[in-house]
Design a protein around this nucleic acid. Structure first.
Lengths: 206, 206, 206, 206
DNA sequence: GATGAATGAGTCTTCATTCAT
DNA sequence: AATGAATGAAGACTCATTCAT
């Protein structure tokens, strides 16, 4: 029987993960040393290693956790009934990401960039991300089908392609916000829609 | 007076940069050691350090060079007259990036992700990128103005906003291609347009 | 008053010692971690440390116990009456060691090598071993005196010297068996005797 | 072309190996830290690791080198013509080992014990030792054949068995000298011969 | 100018031992 | 008495950078 309760155990894990998350964001994945995390967590090296057997595990856990955080953030938006129309949903999603990032020391967008970069080299991370983004995009395709049913976008629209475009817009928003820092959810959403109206088939629009 | 001609100097620089580029892509920025680059370049440690005083310089130079490469790739598309309509331009840009990435050992998309990640920590890199992407987005805004003038998108469209959406689509394509690997230029461009047609103001599209 | 009976205490000690012995043999003295022993013993860290205050104590105890085991093994051979003649005794001793080693997971010879090595650094172990081997050699010298009395070896033989030679043969058998693995008790004993017959000056010795 | 001459390179290797050898002897194989060796060698960590990629390599090299040293020591004795008679050869061999060990800080016997212990766990070391001792024992068997030819030991003697006994005596001398410290080459050799004369069946053997 | 051997601070990780529960 | 989570001092090894030749 464990000497420490499951709740306390989970709390410790959280404590370490929070420390890691903060450090990773501030210093980057590789520039963060285990000692940084150990000090930030307020625990000892041994304790940290009891919960996460290696730095890599900590990285994977931090990214995975942040992915779960995003899911928790976006699921309500994707599942709400009635579904928001395209432009509004896009804006709502990027706004949610933006808002979540504003919390002190917890910038989801920065960690996302770090994670993508790391996933190039880390097979485990790559697989986790692939699963997450594929699932997310599939939800977006579902949304697209709902829009078609609601007559919000052309019957001829391919849900998978629209989902790819939507995901690109969201991911691109994240990059642009992290690098340029001058994008807001509403303007990107507006811009996307104005761009689309260009479709020759939609003309004349005047 | 230099014992070595300027041409030879430039050639050496290129040689080292190519080696660095290849290594960075294969191993990531931090996992690549100076020794990896030294060996790949076929030069000595001293020689490499004569051209690039530190690893950071090499990273910045590699990213900057790749950025110039992208510019050289995209400028013709953005400056051609007559300008491609929106969907075609988006497709042409992502296709160009994709094509460039296909060259063996030189995946532009992977290096882009590495660069974005590093820019979080590296002020110099951040500034370089900021300049590049801001300039690129400004060109996209110009394109947008041309589309408006040509009656290809609504007069009411805000060029800056459309440019942000376009850049997001391009960057998001890069991320999606690097992580999920199942996106092609045409489908994202088509999806983006179909999405936009949803704008109530653009109706009726039926 | 103890909550736990003396019998139970002894049993626990035995249990831990067995675990240690097995681990030491399989992994070596230093490569074995306390955790290995703790897991193998089926007890908790605290419990193991209650019985053996340090790893060193455990090492000393394991070696000392194995030395006692050897003594228990060899005493009957050395004390039996009538005493076996030289070649037979040597063979009987090495055969006993060999047989004991054959028990699964308990190779006396391997532990002997580990112990000798450790005794170089560990004063306590060195003293224990010194006592053991000195005592054993003294018993061998007694045997030699008995052989002289029985006319089995020359009256001029020096019991201390013969004992040294016998001990060397036994220890050398252990090393050779552990490293080369192709020696059997009988052949070494035969070889030793054939070697000795060579001394010209000893003939005829009666 | 190497910047450093082969001679200098060999000298550096020697320097490190000497430091390792000294430390290993004083502290044991595992208790010696790389830092001990680094400090003792007077070089930097990087330099030591340039010559020996890991601690294990250093251990194997130290043991292998000491084995070569023994070979260089004993070959003259085994190859000299006319060959020494059994007792004299045994005495000469153990005396040579003893003498070599007397050099300050270089006790061959202690390192031998450490090496045997390590060979239990280290496959590379085990193979090296196996080769060495097998070869050495084969030389002893050759000596035995020469003795038979010279009428120094019984025609019926089995060279392989005599060699095993001789090797046991030598190895056992090393152990005894290292642990008990009160054995001298002459007394063991004398004891061995007196022991052998005991075999009743061998007399008279001509 | 070029070379590559050497440097040494810094990294991740382990593990004997303790002590709050 | 027992438990096992926590401690933290070391340890092996790496790698960006320098500088004697």
């Amino acid at each position: 029987m464990p000497k420490i309760s499951d709740a306390r155990r989970a709390e410790r894990r959280e404590q370490i993960l929070n420390a890691a998350w903060t450090c990773f964001q501030r210093e980057g994945l590789h520039a963060t040393t285990m000692d940084d995390i150990i000090v930030a967590s307020g625990l000892s090296a041994g304790a940290v290693y009891r919960y996460f057997p290696s730095k890599e595990d900590l990285i994977v856990a931090a990214v995975t956790t942040s992915l779960s955080g995003i899911r928790a953030l976006l699921d309500p938006l994707l599942l709400q009934d009635p579904l928001l129309p395209p432009q509004r949903l896009l804006e709502a999603i990027t706004a949610a990401i933006d808002r979540f990032s504003a919390r002190d020391g917890f910038d989801l967008k920065r960690l996302a960039l770090l994670g993508w970069s790391e996933a190039q080299r880390n097979e485990r991370l790559r697989a986790t991300m692939l699963g997450f983004y594929a699932g997310f995009r599939s939800q977006l395709a579902d949304a697209c089908r709902a829009w078609i049913a609601a007559g919000m976008i052309p019957r001829a629209a391919a849900p998978e392609e629209v989902a790819k475009a939507l995901l690109a817009l969201i991911l691109g928003f994240v990059v642009q916000a992290a690098i340029l820092g001058d994008v807001d959810p509403a303007s990107v959403a507006r811009g996307a829609v104005q761009l689309g109206v260009a479709d020759p088939g939609a003309l004349p629009y005047r």
